[in-house]
Design a protein around this nucleic acid. Structure first.
Lengths: 358, 358
DNA sequence: GCTTAGCACTCCTTGGCTCTGAGTGCTAAT
DNA sequence: ATTAGCACTCAGAGCCAAGGAGTGCTAAGC
């Protein structure tokens, strides 16, 4: 059943006010709004109807109304008005986006921190493969007696490396040969295409370093199969700034216990499919500990083979319009940054790090 | 002025009890202990003395005593008894230590999570260079038209890589040449040894890809100069489980605002020098927001060139003995794991990740 | 002289109580 | 259909008294 315009107006007003005050909204407050020309009594009647329809809730008989999850959902789907970032806001977002030459993983984590800071809520980022990855290039480097480093490049520009300790000694020449063999027979392969037959063939031609082959293959398969990158979740504690968790450390902790990287990567749509932005309102979350928590996720493009998601977690009462606008701005500019590829030095999209062990 | 044995016994008892109950300790509670054979009145007298000496504090006139920071410090330095891990505890620590083949950075972050989980407090890990690093090997890989990946290996087995976009086109052969030049003239160099003269010499011999040289050098210097790796801080919210933050979300948030990776890396001794373990008790912390917070840090060895630190952050009232024991166990076993180098496949100390961008 | 029993005193905590005010639902008038 | 008016509800703030844990001090005991 369709809502009347007036009902929509009232619902929207209630969501807007409640989102910013975190207090139940009474009929008088609505009536006092400049663009509302009905008395509080009329509003009360409408509010009673909206409550009946399940769009509003009443914490107790003599309190104002707050939106129900269904109310939020309707607000998001139909009533939400585009929030326009103020000049100040875009300015600080722009400043925030000036990322230093960084490795990719670090950059993603940095972006998460920025988003969290700008929204004052917990935020996460993930990079996800769009198409299946294939192998691109192998490299083997001596790293000391009995240990070598395997460097593997994938089609999505991921570079992964692994230190391998060998029981047997191999020479530089052996490694060169093996690398040549690998590059000759294992280029542009998906995980499925790497089979026992291939493995055998490579082992046969690999010469002295053939003991390495299974290790190389294992690692390659592991990399190829990895669906999405690490989830970078930060700023969880910003939830505490929200009034719903004032003097409710217990509740907050319950949420924190559920809210970790694992939980994020199990979200029904770590990368939203339907559109660039997606909402999970309160009980739409799987975990019941998060029934009072919402997630806004926004997709952005990183090159051909990859895409990223940035998300924000907050109380169900949150400023969806504003958060969406901010995420959108981030997504758009990140996308641009990746697209144009960064002026050689600028947004350096590489990984790095690694590995000691003797 | 030296404490009498009885005073020591009482101080120890107060710390022990307070640490586990988080409630001020009264004279009766002490008198009731099995190995205390004095009446509560005697204890009261001693407690008054200890208070006068500044080792105990009284929240208000008619409350029991709690240890002052000085009291904790004395407890740590002189009174603390070795805590022995129970069989159950070592068992779960051992289970926790069964880390899957992982890249180094991820492993460090995982260890942090484990420590945090086992101590039920926020924890961090850092890896730090012990000696100066030198360059070991360069590698350049085509990553598509106009973009290449630079792979750099350092003496501490770090492998770092970076995607570089070039305005000019280069061929595979150009890259091969450049790589050969780099490896010929830039092996085993420290950051200082890389100077303008060297740069010029390389540029001269680098052929077609000489435009790349400054970028390579910059990145190399950046890597060589990096003193310590990323700080991995996790489990901050576990602080909320501590009674001091029950119903004190504000205070907790204040702490959280200060307690981040930056703060950790500015700790006076990210890696303790004096001994494997070090304590920062309450106000010994620099930041005044952390005046009620203590840090326990424990060093462990990773191979020749590197060492790691694991640390735990908690309320000043914390079980220093137990935490130290647990950290010690972790450190010892991590050390072993790195030392023996992992059976080729096991603790895989590599990095990985990287970098898309088109 | 050290130890301890006893006692008056302090002061935080808890629970119950009332009062207040915001907000509702309903009815009757416009 | 709207609105003014009114009785009713109920959470929250403020207040007070009782309860109880713990102290410091004094005087008696070993």
């Amino acid at each position: 059943m369709e809502l009347t315009d007036r009902q929509k107006q009232i619902l929207r007003a209630i969501v807007d006010i409640y989102v910013s005050t975190a207090e139940p909204v009474g009929s008088k407050a609505i009536a006092a709004l400049p663009d509302v020309c009905y008395s509080s009594a009329t509003i009360r009647n409408e509010m009673a109807d909206l409550t009946q329809m399940g769009l509003l809730e009443q914490p107790h008989t003599s309190a104002g109304r707050i939106p129900s999850p269904a109310g939020y959902r309707l607000y998001i789907d139909e009533l939400m008005q585009d929030y326009r970032l103020s000049l100040d806001e875009t300015k600080s977002l722009n400043e925030a986006l000036e990322l230093k030459s960084q490795e990719f993983d670090k950059m993603m984590s940095q972006v998460g921190k920025l988003v969290s800071k700008m929204t004052d809520l917990p935020a996460y980022t993930v990079a996800t493969r769009r198409n299946e990855a294939v192998t691109k290039h192998f490299d083997l480097i001596m790293a000391g007696p009995g240990s070598i480093i395997l460097v593997l490049m994938l089609s999505d520009d991921q570079v992964r490396n692994k230190l391998i300790k060998l029981p047997v000694a191999v020479t530089e020449a052996d490694l060169k040969l093996l690398a040549a063999v690998l590059n000759a027979s294992m280029t542009d392969l998906t995980a499925e295409q790497i089979n026992a037959e291939l493995l055998e063939k490579i082992t046969r031609t690999a010469g002295a370093a053939s003991a390495l082959v299974p290790l190389v293959i294992d690692f390659t398969l592991e990399c190829l199969r990895q669906q999405h990158g690490d989830v970078h979740l930060t700023g969880q504690m910003r939830l505490l700034g929200q009034p719903e968790y004032k003097d409710a450390a217990e509740k907050a902790q319950e949420v924190f216990e559920t809210l970790d990287e694992d939980m994020i990567s199990n979200l029904p749509a770590v990368l939203p499919k339907d559109g660039p932005v997606q909402f999970l309102v309160g009980p739409e979350n799987v975990a019941k500990e998060l029934k009072d928590t919402s997630v806004v996720m926004m997709r952005f493009d990183i090159g051909e083979g990859m895409q990223g998601t940035i998300g924000v977690v907050g109380p169900t009462r949150m400023d969806y319009a504003k958060i969406t606008a901010k995420l959108g701005y981030f997504a758009e500019n990140l996308g641009k940054m990746f697209q144009k590829g960064g002026a050689a030095t600028q947004p350096a999209l590489t990984d790095g790090t690694d590995a000691s062990n003797k």
